[in-house]
Design a protein around this nucleic acid. Structure first.
Length: 598
RNA sequence: GAGGGUGUAGCGAAGCUGGUUAUCGCGACGGCCUGUCACGCCGUAGAUCGCGGGUUCGAGUCCCGUCACUCUCGCCA
């Protein structure tokens, strides 16, 4: 190895204070800004820890002046010099190191920087694909540095807390057997066994259950999960879960552990005090009251059932839908100082509703003494006081209605209106509002394939009172399932699991897996249950989503070091990519291209 | 699979109902500058307006197609 190839730092760029006055130091870092006054140079030197001002004085040697003149932004340099106090009038209170500067005696250029494809930290954020292509530059920005720290702090705090509660961190395989339900699997072809494939796990579900059978009692893992589905702002094809599982627990043990965990983590990481216990809503109540199973509780605006009064109105559309067993729901938009309930605004709300299946959005403006104007007001003649009182509507408010045959579509459409109102009317409080959604239905009917399937997954325990009616009335069965919702995002999902072979088989059968298929697919799980399986349950918070919300971002890309774009491509390393014929041969694969491609 | 939005110099943007040489900020390059901290000042270069076709005397602008990115629906136990 070479001897000393560069002057190694004695401290970082965020640490010097006036207590260090007179100290000889070496700093390593990047040229953040370079202010050249001819004979006088100011260089803001940046590393992960902060920024320190380096000065090249007019008394500097010719050599030092020459090097200083050569510098450009993002050059990686080593500065040897002496810490000194800035003149009083030159102190920069904006910088933590603003009371001092380093008078350079020597500057070494460790690595030059090519002309930048975009500027770092100048406020003009480039398009995301460019940021992703040059992620190593993007990561140097203050925002990314801050979010990577938040991510580390969050994960470390989780590890620490769970360890204190007797959890073991255990890794499970990332090449496993493909299972037939849920999302599409990513497959890994086997070289040794032609035609056979591993799958990348969609979650460590079965393995963590088997860890419980193995007597590990309490387990967690920062687990990478893979699902081959289209991306969104809050999800991509590979993501990270804080996966955990516990033995000999009931639902409330898991819920209170999570409350304690995040209470501790939010305090430690953000100095934020969460309530000790969080609101619980049944799945049905969440849909009925907020229209969706992941309500944003940073603002209220509940939905109301107005079937009864709709029936009494003279509006044929509502009456028809109600008499055919459909639903009419309404929401009251509070009077706003900043937003005018114009035709244009109402249309924008209607557009939001239509995305989720609403045919239209009916509206009424409430005036003085419950006088109704506009929209469908004339059909509610004589019902003004009743409706206004039911909706708690006051002068200046607007009542909005969605009517639909299908309860879920009615809820979802009006929920979209609620969300838009929250944003547009500026009703969203700045806070972290957790809530539990519990009592999910265990099964949903798949119309296309004409059979029942698991609403979450097939390993969740039905609630005891439904054990006798699983087969006769699957649709009404509620499970010991729970979702954790934060600010309108689903951030965790879990359940108490089945640990009994016969019960598990009954669930498989209802989901259209005969015993033979179930044994073939899930035999290893069923087998483990034959050897003294403990009651167990768990949950898996999405790490990316949690940190995204904590960072007040709207895309998980902002909290993942190297994310894929929405098309599943990584612009930096250009994956996915073609491979050599030789590699395909080794894997016994022949590519069958779609017709449109070459 | 479907819909919306965006695409103008290395980056971020402006460019109105079509009208001369496409504008601004940052950056790059050259020069000046002793207390800046988004330093300042003077100057220079840099754009087939995503791509293809059409309408028109004339297209960055209008129309059709296409590609890329992005948001959303479907999908995501």
């Amino acid at each position: 190895m070479a001897e000393e190839v560069f002057s190694q730092r004695t401290t970082t760029c965020g640490s010097l204070t006036k207590a260090d006055n007179g100290a000889k130091v070496v700093l390593n870092g990047w040229v953040h800004r370079d202010r050249n006054h001819g004979a006088l140079h100011f260089i803001n030197l940046r590393d992960r820890y902060g920024i320190t001002q380096v000065v090249v004085d007019d008394d500097a040697s010719k050599e030092l002046q020459a090097v200083a003149n050569e510098l450009h932004m993002e050059y990686c340099i080593a500065v040897t010099g002496v810490v000194r106090l800035r003149p009083d009038s030159m102190v920069n209170p904006e910088m933590t190191t603003g009371e001092v500067e380093v008078k350079a005696e020597r500057i070494e250029i460790l690595s030059k920087c090519a002309p930048l494809p975009f500027q770092i930290d100048d406020g003009n954020e480039p398009r995301e694909d460019l940021r992703l292509k040059y992620r190593y530059l993007d990561l140097r920005t203050q925002g990314m540095q801050k979010r990577m720290k938040l991510r580390h702090d969050f994960i470390f705090a989780c590890r620490k807390y769970l360890t204190s509660r007797d959890f073991y961190e255990i890794e499970t395989p990332t090449m496993i057997k493909s299972t037939p339900e849920g999302a599409r699997d990513f497959l890994v072809p086997s070289r040794i066994y032609p035609g056979k494939f591993y799958a990348l796990p969609q979650s460590p579900q079965l393995f963590k259950q088997i860890l419980m059978v193995g007597g590990m009692d309490k387990y967690f893992q920062i687990a990478r999960c893979y699902r081959d589905e289209d991306a969104r702002g809050d999800r991509q094809l590979e993501f990270t879960q804080l996966d955990l599982e516990m033995s000999f627990v009931k639902r409330d043990d898991v819920l209170s552990l999570m409350e304690d965990l995040f209470g501790s983590v939010f305090k430690e990481v953000m100095d934020y005090d969460l309530p000790a216990r969080w609101r619980r809503l049944s799945y049905h109540d969440a849909l009925n009251t907020y229209g969706c199973d992941k309500p944003d509780l940073r603002f209220d605006l509940p939905l109301s059932d107005v079937n009864e009064i709709a029936k009494k109105s003279s509006f044929a559309t509502f009456k028809d839908i109600v008499s055919n067993g459909g639903y009419v729901k309404a929401i009251c938009a509070p009077k706003s100082e900043t937003v005018d309930f114009s035709r244009k605004f109402i249309t924008s709300l209607e557009d939001a509703a239509k995305i989720y299946g609403a045919q239209g959005l009916a509206w009424i403006k409430v005036g003085e003494n419950n006088t109704f104007t506009g929209g469908v007001s004339k059909f509610f003649a004589g019902l003004e006081d009743e409706l206004a009182s039911m909706m708690d509507a006051k002068e200046g408010d607007m009542i909005l209605f969605v009517a639909h045959q299908d309860w879920k579509k009615c809820c979802a459409s009006l929920s979209a209106v609620r969300t838009k109102l929250g944003k547009d009317l500026n009703l969203i409080r700045k806070s972290f509002e957790f809530c539990w959604i519990v009592d999910f239905p265990l099964f949903e009917y798949n119309e296309e394939e004409s059979h029942w399937e698991a609403a979450h997954h097939m390993f969740s325990m039905p609630q005891a009172e439904y054990l006798d009616t699983l087969e006769s009335d699957p649709g009404s069965v509620k499970g010991d399932l729970y979702d954790l919702v934060l600010n309108g995002y689903e951030v965790a999902s879990g359940s108490i699991r089945i640990h009994d072979v016969e019960l598990q088989k009954r669930i498989f059968r209802i989901c259209n897996f005969d015993d033979e298929t179930a044994e073939e697919r899930f035999g290893f799980l069923l087998n483990s249950f034959r050897y003294g399986a403990p009651p167990h349950g768990g949950i898996a918070p999405g790490v990316d989503r949690m940190i995204m919300i904590m960072a007040e971002e709207s895309s998980i890309h902002e909290v993942i070091a190297f994310p894929k774009n929405t098309a599943g491509i990584s612009p930096m390393d250009d994956s996915p990519s073609l491979v050599d014929e030789k590699q395909l041969d080794d894997l016994h694969l022949i590519i069958k291209y779609p017709e449109s491609k070459t």
